[in-house]
Design a protein around this nucleic acid. Sequence first.
DNA 1: GAGCACTGC
Length: 558
Amino acid sequence: MTMIKFLTDGVLIREMMEDPLLSKYSVIMIDEAHERSISTDILLGLLKKIQRRRPELRLIISSATIEARSMSTFFSNRRKNSLLKPADGLPNPEPAILSVEGRGYTVETHYLEEPVSDYLQAAVNTVLIIHEKEPPGDILVFLTGQDDIDAALKLLNDEIQHLGKHYFDLVILPLYSGLPRGDQDLIFAPTSKGKRKVVISTNIAETSLTLEGVVYVVDSGFSKQKCYNPISDLESLVVAPISKASARQRAGRAGRVRPGKCFRLYTEEYYLNEMQSDGIPEMQRSNLVSCIIQLKALGIDNILGFDWPASPSPEAMIRALEILFSLGILDEDAKLTVPIGFQVAEMPLDPMISKMILSANDFGCSDEILTIAAFLSVQSVWVSMRGVKKEFDEAKLRFAAAEGDHVTFLNIYKGFHQSGKSSQWCYKNFLNHQALKKVIEIRAQLVRVMKRFGIQLKSCDRDMQAVRKAIIAGSFANSCHLEEYGQNGMYKTIRTSQEVYIHPSSVLFRVNPKWVVYQSLVSTDKHYMRNVIAIEPSWLTEAAPHFYQFRTPNPAPH
DNA sequence: GAGCACTGC
């Protein structure tokens, strides 16, 4: 009997840790390979390796037309390094390119005659023209982020007030992942007769969400993209031009129910001659810590020599190796350590968080740390409400701990349990019920992982110093010192003297303790530390003497 | 005074 299994590429990579040749599968199909996510790229590299040992394994790589040629090239040079010759009964090792017609309707593309400098205003104007000139059908507008979307919403509403009655038929809705669940659901609600829905969205509507009823797409030509600098080890989000592949994907969103139209807010000349055909693979825009640990767990020792579909820079690989070494996950020979390294590789979390969990028992607080790790794995437990800022801040203060965000999570968790996991209680406290239920779920899964490792759960009761020390065991590299004579709470990282600030969502925002450790950085207009705790500097040298003792101290401010 | 989008147990 043939079984068909549907899973994500990340899960398949995890299965390879048990069964490196994936011997129970005879055909593997990778969908959406053109999206070039990190796990897709790792998987492609691994499958190419497997094929050398298993020439009978059939691979089907499904990708947008634009990427098919490079995929084919990646898989066809495998014969150079292989002694295998095509044998009878085995598939031809040369990849074939098959073309499968999509189900979409045709989409007519329109370009601007002249480039514009203000794509927000251009988007708003385009929406109004579509509503005036085109037959019924919803409009989907692609912008870059929440700020853009809110600004466009306001512009559009102002224009409508001016233009009058005919334009009141427009139902304008924002869409981005940070939007509360209820507001997101509005997008899917059917519009009443005679109304036209206008959804102003981030990239979420490009691949993650599908909106039925869209006939017109307005494409700004931009999106926010992750970008990584291995020298400073900083990941940031920047507004950048999209690729042709992305532009085509966006246009395709107009042709799902009937022939549609796509209005690109750039010129045809720009599309043909200047736009990159593909985006930069995520692999080349990211911190590689998790990626490298997975390859190590699969027994791939020569990371620098691995045959990637798109090789990351040596600097990025070396940086990741350094971090893993400092955490005690890799040894001097860049092999996984026993047991920490192998255990961390098995945990589906950021290695710094995994390390924190595994160290927690030394401080007798694994119970608390598992809760914290679960909180760190969900987007945000707060319901953001821009309108009722004051009440929101007060709600937050009820849980805020002087130590910082991690300890605040423990307070929220306790309160949620005491309320009987009540959604009413969440509502009153501006907490996201869905997110908190997810926290409980993730925590239970982490408890099972710990059991498998034979690690007992221990609670430290009220000893928050123990909790903070366990956090440092994972995040010691993320330590920062407040610049005393600077203004507005500027910190500098100890490792690289980077200028950073506490994120306004942190309970330590404007509290500005002298020494802090952060969980992650988000870089937009500034580098913001998210999930921050206050520490004593001596705890750093205590936790990681190998990391701190030979480093030059932070230059004294003058 | 701020959050492109995903995934894993």
